[in-house]
Each structure stands twice: as C-alpha cells, then as structure tokens.
Design a protein around this nucleic acid. Structure first.
Lengths: 213, 213
DNA sequence: GCGCGGGTGTGAACGGCGTTCACATTAATG
DNA sequence: CATTAATGTGAACGCCGTTCACACCCGCGC
C-alpha cells in the first residue's frame, strides 16, 4: 500500500477503507480526518479533494455499514425454511429482528456507525439511503412486513404502526445490549432475551392486525 | 448574575445551571468547557477547580437529567387510578413507559443527555446513578415490575427478562421518535404509536409470565 | 512531441476544543 | 496580622476540522 510517488492512486477508496477499519474497532468517534491522513501518509487537506468534509466521509461510511446490516438481515432471512406461508412470514419477521440484533453484537462499532444520528447527518443520510434500494435495514423490515400483509396477518393501514413497533423493540434492545445498561449480559442470556424480544414483536404485530383488520 | 470581583461566588452551581440550559436546547454536544466559561466570564481553567474535566461535568448533568426523567415517570404513575390491584399494576407499567416517552418528546436535549452512552462514561454513571436511589428511571421501572410480581403476573425469575423487554421497546421508540427515522411523526400519530408500544410491552410481559410461572 | 489545464497532494495557517501549569488573588484560620 | 488553602488567571500544549495559496503530474488537444 506504499504510495509510489506524488499521487496516491486511489485515495478516496483508501480513506473509506481506513475509516471503515477505524469505525470497526472504535466506532464512529474513531474516524478523524487527520488521523486517517496520517495513516495513509498524506496531508490532511488531501482528504478534502475527495470528500466535502468530515461529515460527508462519515455519511459515506455509514451507508456502507447500513448495507452490511441489511446483508446480515438478509442472510438470516435466507435461513428461514419455506413452507406454510403464514409460518414463513412469522419466521421472516423473527429473522429480520434477529439478524439486526446479531449484527449489532458482532460489529458494535459498525452498528453504531450505521445508526449514528447526531449532527444533522440524518436528513442527507435518509435520502441517500433510500436511493440505495434494498441495501438498507429499513427496506428489509418493509419487505418482512410485506410478507405479513400478503398472508393477511397485517392490514395495509397498520403497516406504519407495525413498523414503528417492530423497529422500536429491536433497535432498543440492540442499543441497550451494545452500549446501554444491558451491555454486560453474557452471550447465552442475551440470546434468550433477544428471542423474547422478537416474540413480543410477533405478538404485538398480531395484535395490531387483530384490533383493526 | 454579574460577578462582583475576583471570585464568582458559586461557580460550580453556575456551571451546572449553564450546562443544563445548554443541553436543554442543544443536547449534550452543546456542553463545552470553554463556552460555559465564556458565558460566565471566567477563564476556562477555572472550570477545573470544580470538575475533574469535561466528562465529569457531563456526568453530573446527566444524573440531573436522569432524575428529571424519573420524576416525569413518577408524575405519570401518580395519575393511575387505584382500584383492582391487577389493573393498577398494568396501568403503572403503561404509565411508566408513557412517562419516559413523553419526557423524551418534551425535553429531547435533556433526554439525550440522560442516556448518552459514549466515551466510557457509563461505568461511572451507572454506579453513581444507583447511589441516587429512587431518582433514576431504572428504579422506576423496577418498581413497576415489583407491582406486577406482587400481583402474581410476573415471576421473580422472569424479572430480568421482563425488564429488558419493556425497556427495549420503550427506549427504542423514544429514540426513534426523538432522533431517529420517526422523528418527523406528528404529535397525534406519535401518541397512537406510543400507546401501541406500551400495549405490546404489557402483552409481552404477560407472555413472559404465562410461559413459565 | 509539446504544452497546458485540471485534478490531486502539500504546507502553513486559522479558530476551536479539552487540558495543564505556574502564578495571582482572595477568604478564612490561628 | 501572617499563613494557608481555595479559587480564578493567562499562557501554553496538542488535538481537531477546515481553508487557501501553491506545487506537482497526468492526459488531452495541438
């Protein structure tokens, strides 16, 4: 990776990779323009040839991390056996949540990077994330809810509420276990609790349907 | 508030108050040693006569904010009509969650200050928060669960799991609406969703009891 | 084959931050 | 009244993100 001469070759890619590594071990706070430049033997100002600034760099990396969360969820969903569509829809819901939670456990730094919210980063991220169709956790959740709707376990009008419900519980649990008061739970207990959380969500969604549709 | 002479009078208190105001409108990121000192016409180094550093100042303010969350929950619980103990226990659970969520809505800056988790602030905070008995949201939740246990709707052994369940959903929902993708929800919809979240928690807790006790 | 323009990297600087330390000032104590 | 401990000062350190004038080099059009 030693640079040949005056030019670096692909500094943008190199910055993204280095930033990714930094976030992986230290979370989003570990991403510093100057430190990345130092690591790549480059002047700090060179970074600004490839990114508007620190925020845009973080945004780009956050999208990368979000895509990884989405992939993890998709992988978990892929394990759900097909069969009775109703049962499968339920299984997909559970897998979606479990995939999200397990990713948070296995890559806490990237998880925190993906769902970092401060600094008015959000608006831009939301827009761009919606652009990267199918590679965001939001999309995965919506697909899982689609399955429920198709099977008749959820009405169209309850979708928004159902989404809030499911997301709240799963995201909250992930946060509490990654950087909250539940972070010192041992792996086994964590798994048990995770199972109960998705079970609670499953029932909550059923109730959603039952009370209206 | 103009200082009389060389000494300030009660700089520690003044710093805490100013920091509180800053966090109230701008969240924890808005708390800066230098800016607080500037606002109080004091040298930045003077702050270090009263706090070990930035982190301890934030910790102190975070405890103050946590106490306010606890108060808000307690106020909401006080509104629950007494009567059938079972119904009341359920009502207390709901009020606990609603109080938490409403506080997050009415004071987002303080809410974020209270549950800020980065920078290894946590260990110290957890310890000190436990010291300030009864004035932390954790204690409020535990009391609400106590009520469920007394009424027989929850077994002792399921307490930990129940706590994780309830907290995950409520905290997650609060976060998503305060600084997450649900932050642009209108007040009415927000209330409806909040109701569903606590309802989901109530059922989840019942399920907890049913599957074991 | 040459020169030039535009993309890329440099180095120094700016203002901000948290923090430290030697020093000045004051209030309280004996 | 003299000493001491507490409190505030001012200048510095090293970090950060960011800007700007400048140096460098690749590739395009002549």
């Amino acid at each position: 990776m030693a640079r040949s001469g005056y030019f670096h070759g692909d500094l943008r890619r190199a910055l993204l990779d280095a930033g990714f590594d930094a976030a992986r071990s230290g979370g989003p706070e570990a991403i510093s323009v100057r430190e990345l430049a130092r690591g790549l033997d480059v002047a700090p100002s060179a970074v600004y040839r490839h990114f508007e600034g620190h925020d845009e760099l973080l945004l780009e990396l956050s999208l990368r991390a979000q895509a990884m969360v989405a992939d993890a969820m998709e992988a978990e969903i892929a394990l759900v056996p097909s069969g009775d569509p109703r049962a499968r829809a339920d299984g997909v819901i559970a897998a979606t949540g479990i995939g999200y939670i397990r990713f948070a456990w296995s890559e806490p730094g990237l998880f925190r990077l993906a769902f970092r919210t401060r600094d008015n980063l959000d608006a831009a991220r939301d827009e761009r994330a919606r652009g990267a169709c199918g590679r965001t956790p939001y999309e995965q959740l919506e697909r899982a809810l689609d399955a429920l709707v198709e099977v008749g376990e959820l009405s169209e009008q309850d979708r928004a509420g159902a989404e809030a419900l499911a997301w709240s519980a799963v995201h909250g649990f992930a946060l509490l276990t990654v950087e909250g008061p539940l972070r010192s739970l041992d792996a086994a207990t964590r798994e048990v609790f995770a199972g109960r959380v998705v079970e609670m969500v499953r029932q909550g969604l059923a109730q959603c349907a039952g009370s209206r549709g």
